[in-house]
Design a protein around this nucleic acid. Structure first.
Length: 233
RNA sequence: GUCCGUCUAGUUAG
């Protein structure tokens, strides 16, 4: 399913049933997640009904997959409806649930909404994690609120350890607005934290310079990349 | 006790 071969997943699922191999929640979620990603909501709903009628109740990964898929389609209202179901079924939303919702608001550029979810999360004693912070940073970057994004990095450095994704997100933000000096500054911070630059980060920076029609810097980075290429994917 | 399976965050012109 993750390879985008959902049809094969469905076939395999049928064969399992023929052979009397009973599906579990995990089996169902693998399928449902795949169907959500290929936005086949109708089919996903079919499997949810099937699951319910065989006495299996959806767990948080299933709800989260539905919430995340809705958010990525820009349908935060539907995600919130599903969240309502979660509460009604007496399940407890977890960090992933909130992160998916925060991402939903960020994708719509609704940062106030995103922050509200963060507040809800905290009031429910769920601690924001690296995903939360990176998602927020990305949202702020997209809106050009780079100072906010930079503040979040400072916060992350204080509270936990930023990873490659965190740095790349901020660097990409600077690149988006042509602030290459800032981008490089963050890159250097990252290197000084002993993180080895990966392909994505090099692509991000090269793309940034290229868009500024600064091919020399881009070429410089490319040769640096070649030197390090044995360490890359 | 420890690992492992399903859910959330990063780049890529046309």
């Amino acid at each position: 399913c993750k390879q985008g071969l959902v049809d094969d997943g469905i076939q395999l699922f049928s064969r399992m049933k023929e052979k009397r191999v009973l599906p579990t929640v995990v089996t169902y979620n693998s399928l449902i997640h795949g169907l959500c990603v290929s936005s086949s909501w109708g089919e996903a709903g079919g499997y949810i009904k099937e699951m319910l009628s065989s006495g299996i109740s959806p767990d948080m990964p299933i709800y989260n997959a539905l919430i995340d898929a809705s958010c990525k389609e820009g349908r935060v209202e539907r995600a919130l409806e599903i969240l309502g179901l979660v509460v009604r079924e007496k399940r407890e939303p977890n960090v992933i649930t909130y992160n998916a919702l925060i991402n939903g608001y960020c994708l719509l550029g609704k940062m106030e909404g995103a922050i509200k979810v963060v507040n809800t999360m905290v009031s429910q004693k769920k601690t924001p994690d690296l995903f939360t912070y990176t998602t927020l940073m990305r949202g702020f970057c997209k809106k050009g609120m780079l100072v906010k994004a930079r503040e979040i990095l400072a916060l992350v450095i204080r509270k936990e350890k930023p990873n490659m994704v965190t740095y790349t997100t901020l660097i990409h933000g600077y690149c988006l607005f042509g602030k290459m000096e800032e981008a490089v500054k963050i890159f250097n911070v990252m290197v000084s934290m002993n993180l080895k630059p990966d392909l994505v980060i090099y692509n991000t920076l090269m793309d940034g310079f290229h868009k500024l029609t600064n091919p020399n810097e881009a070429k410089q980075l490319f040769s640096e990349l070649r030197v390090h290429s044995q360490n890359l994917d």
